[in-house]
Structures are given as C-alpha cells and as structure tokens.
Amino acid sequence: MASDGVVVEIGKVTGSVGTTVEIPVYFRGVPSKGIANCDFVFRYDPNVLEIIGIDPGDIIVDPNPTKSFDTAIYPDRKIIVFLFAEDSGTGAYAITKDGVFAKIRATVKSSAPGYITFDEVGGFADNDLVEQKVSFIDGGVNVGNATPTKGATPTNTATPTK
C-alpha cells in the first residue's frame, strides 16, 4: 500500500443473489490541510450489481451534504461517478479525517463476483488547492465463495486525467 498520499479503498462485503448490500468507500491518509475537492470514477458490471443509491459517509460534515457531495450512476456506461467540492468557501466542510467517504447500496443480481474497480481520477486537492497523490484499492461483493480481489494492489495516480 502507498505510504504517502490519500488511499481510496472500496470495501469488500459478502452478499447473495437478491440481497441488498452496503459497500463502503474509505479514505485513508487524509492530509493535515484536509480535502477540499476530489472527483473520480469507479467501474462495475450492472449485470452483477444493480447500484440503487449512494449515501455520504461520516467524513462528509456539510450539514447539507447534497451541496458538497454528488454522485451519478450510469449503468449503460458501467460507471459510478463521485464528486466532492467543499461548499462553505472557508474550508469548514472539508474532509479532515480518515473514514467512510461514501456507502454504495447495491442489489446482487448474479452469482458472479461483484467487482467495483477504479477507472479514472480527475483530481484530489487540499484546502490550499494543492494537488494530492492518490491511490485506489478495488473491492466489491463476495457472492458465495467468490472473492472480488482483482486489482487489490493500489493504483498510483500522480496526475489528473480527463
């Protein structure tokens, strides 16, 4: 695992066909100046998982989280898009600690492993708008004895992609 920078880890949970599971997305290594904004994309298989919603985690402190935390689910493109932009203008609602960034709610549709993997990152910046190093650890849903650990090695991303 990367020793510096922010680590975004997609949790690994267990479920069975027809059940709804909650998959946490963790941030670790949050910089001392916090995270003022970030955007990134995960990939998944809508034939295996139906993403039914995404909720902000406990490290989102904006009293009205829909102003700073936004997501979009595109089953036709097989992606989930995340956007966080601190909304106070003063840094008061920045992410300042490690913990759960988001909770992905999904219904298991198939007995195949439900991988959720890193696809791309736009950027991560602290309260001074300084770009942060970030790496990703894939996860998803274990169905029966299947284990979604494909790509469990962190993917280092030093520069934003478009």
Rank of each mutant, 00 (worst) to 15 (best):
I79Y: 13
A94L: 04
V21M: 05
T20Y: 11
R105A: 13
I137M: 08
G114C: 06
I54W: 01
P24V: 03
G122H: 00
D87G: 14
F84Q: 03
I137F: 13
V81F: 01
S32C: 01
P31H: 03
Y26V: 04
V100G: 05
D87Q: 15
P75A: 06
D128I: 03
K33D: 02
A146V: 13
G151I: 07
Q132E: 02
I95N: 09
F101V: 09
S111C: 14
A158V: 10
I23Q: 12
I80V: 04
I51V: 06
T96W: 10
L49W: 02
T153D: 12
F69T: 09
D4A: 06
G18V: 09
T14C: 14
S16R: 13
V41S: 01
G139A: 12
K109P: 08
P148G: 03
G123N: 00
N142V: 08
D62V: 14
D70K: 01
S3P: 09
A94W: 00
S32L: 07
D70M: 15
K150P: 12
T155S: 12
D70G: 15
G5L: 10
N64Y: 12
V21Y: 05
G144S: 12
A112C: 12
S32R: 09
K109L: 08
V100M: 13
P56F: 11
L129E: 01
V61P: 09
A102E: 04
E86I: 00
S16K: 11
I54C: 03
I60W: 09
F69Y: 11
Y74M: 01
C38M: 01
D55V: 07
D126P: 00
N156P: 13
N156Y: 11
F82G: 01
G29C: 02
N127S: 02
V21L: 14
T161W: 14
I104Y: 14
T14V: 15
Y74R: 00
E9Q: 10
P65M: 07
T153A: 10
S3K: 07
Q132T: 09
D126H: 01
E131R: 01
I116Q: 12
T66D: 04
F124V: 02
A102G: 09
C38H: 00
P24F: 10
S68F: 05
T161L: 08
K133E: 05
I73C: 07
T19P: 11
G114I: 05
V8M: 02
G34T: 06
V48I: 05
G15F: 05
S3Y: 07
A94G: 13
F118Y: 05
I60K: 15
P46M: 08
I79R: 01
G5D: 14
A94V: 05
K97I: 14
S3H: 05
T161R: 10
S88I: 03
L83S: 01
K67N: 13
R105H: 13
A102Q: 03
I35H: 02
D58F: 15
N127A: 02
F84D: 03
S135P: 04
K150W: 15
D62G: 12
K97Y: 14
T159Y: 14
K12Y: 09
K109R: 12
I73N: 07
Y44N: 04
V61Q: 12
A125W: 00
D87H: 15
R43W: 02
G91Q: 04
A72Y: 00
I104L: 12
D119L: 05
A125D: 01
L129Y: 15
D39I: 00
P65W: 15
A152N: 10
F84V: 01
F82V: 02
I79F: 15
I51Y: 13
P24Y: 03
D4L: 05
A152C: 13
I35V: 04
D58N: 06
I104K: 01
P46K: 11
T159Q: 14
S3W: 09
K133P: 05
D138T: 09
K103F: 11
A72I: 00
V41R: 00
K97M: 05
Y26K: 04
T71E: 01
D128N: 04
T66S: 07
Y93E: 13
F136D: 10
V81D: 01
V81A: 02
N64D: 06
V8K: 01
Y115H: 07
P160Y: 09
T71V: 02
S88R: 07
D128R: 10
S88N: 07
G114E: 09
T117D: 07
F40M: 03
V8W: 01
E50W: 03
V17H: 09
G89D: 01
T157N: 13
E50C: 04
K133I: 06
S68L: 09
T157V: 09
K12C: 05
S68W: 08
D55Y: 04
G5A: 06
A92T: 10
K67L: 08
E9K: 09
F82R: 00
K33E: 02
N145E: 10
P154I: 06
L129W: 15
G122C: 01
I59A: 13
F40Q: 03
E50Y: 09
F40G: 01
P31D: 07
R105C: 07
S135I: 06
R77N: 00
A152R: 11
L49K: 15
F27M: 13
D87L: 15
K67G: 13
T14I: 05
V141G: 14
D58S: 10
P46A: 09
D45T: 11
F69H: 06
N145V: 15
L49G: 15
T147A: 12
C38Y: 01
I60P: 11
E50K: 15
G5E: 07
F101L: 06
N127F: 02
F27N: 15
I52D: 05
T147F: 09
E120Y: 03
I10A: 04
I116W: 02
N37R: 01
G15K: 13
P31Y: 13
D128E: 03
E131I: 01
T153Y: 06
I116N: 15
D98L: 11
A112T: 05
D4G: 04
N47F: 11
V143F: 14
V8Y: 00
R43P: 03
Y44I: 13
I52C: 07
F101S: 06
T149L: 13
I60M: 07
I35T: 03
Y44F: 05
Y93L: 11
P63G: 15
V25P: 03
V30W: 02
P63R: 12
T161P: 09
G29E: 03
E22N: 07
T149W: 13
P31A: 04
F101R: 00
K103I: 11
V30D: 03
K150V: 09
D4R: 08
S88Q: 09
P148T: 05
V143T: 11
I104D: 01
F84K: 01
T153K: 05
D62S: 15
N145C: 12
L129G: 01
P31V: 15
V81H: 00
D55K: 08
I79H: 01
V30R: 10
D62H: 15
D55G: 14
S3L: 05
